[in-house]
Design a binder for these strands. Sequence first.
DNA 1: TTCATAATCGGAATGATTCCTACTTATAGG
DNA 2: CCTATAAGTAGGAATCATTCCGATTATGAA
Lengths: 149, 149
Amino acid sequence: MKSEQKPQDIEQTLISRLRDKGYKLTPQRREIIRILARDESHPGAMDILREVRKILPRISMSTVYYTLDMLKKEGFIKELEFYDTENRYDINVSDHINLVCTTCGKITDFMSDVHSFSESVEKETGFRPARMRFEYYGICRNCAGRNGR
Amino acid sequence: MKSEQKPQDIEQTLISRLRDKGYKLTPQRREIIRILARDESHPGAMDILREVRKILPRISMSTVYYTLDMLKKEGFIKELEFYDTENRYDINVSDHINLVCTTCGKITDFMSDVHSFSESVEKETGFRPARMRFEYYGICRNCAGRNGR
DNA sequence: TTCATAATCGGAATGATTCCTACTTATAGG
DNA sequence: CCTATAAGTAGGAATCATTCCGATTATGAA
Ligand SMILES: [Mn+2]
Ligand SMILES: [Mn+2]
Ligand SMILES: [Zn+2]
Ligand SMILES: [Zn+2]
């Protein structure tokens, strides 16, 4: 149910891919990437800002957004959009289902073969799917255990 | 691939259900409901405002949001949230996949048995799904036909 | 018809994200 | 090592859909 690679591998892969593409490797970028690779909870921009500031206290929110935008454009992360709370960022760019806990806010991955759908969608409707967003909202095991059944 | 009921039936059902619950049936509400029941494109709040104003020129955006919020709370519509564009409203409250065209912005329904997932999610992870959001982003038949292939 | 109060209206406030500008820095080539 | 400069960063203003607020209006029960 987890991403296949280790955080450190993801981190190193990302860094060398950015270097190859000619991006400058600033401490800000390295730190943001490090957090994204390790944080399984699909953090938001503010979460990332808070974390990075433990190491780089003067980093600005602008830089966080600028970097996330760049990683997004390069296809290294996915942005999960919510209107009633800040967007969340997902280092797992493969197609999968995100399980959003409405109690604690944590988001976890559910890897599953989800592709059967996209074929029948195109066959039956003519709509050509490019990317998907599958989410379940509910109560995570942790929160269910705490109180009530 | 369409909703089973006719727009007029949906409209009447909604109105009597609101009456039963003690809501006041104002012209504003009737008109908003009429539009939601007929508009297959999953309109946004501004779309709805524009449409309603053809009949009720003085209706305010506040009222549109207030009414949508009420219908949402009562479970009569679903809100689809996007961060980079206004939210869209779906009269189809059953579980289904929404196909979002990234070219023209239209959203269409794809009814499909989607329930197989939720069982395995709970069995394998302990996460208890309450509601779902499944979307494909891509090019609709109409837009694909226009140019390219 | 009267009345209580739910609904409406217009506008201000909110807050995440984007935009703008000036300053700083990482890297490549000499 | 030094320097030039394109790229990146910081800080703050602007944006814009949505929410909130106080004053006014109108629905529906009595
Ligand atoms: Mn994920
Ligand atoms: Mn729909
Ligand atoms: Zn939880
Ligand atoms: Zn289209």
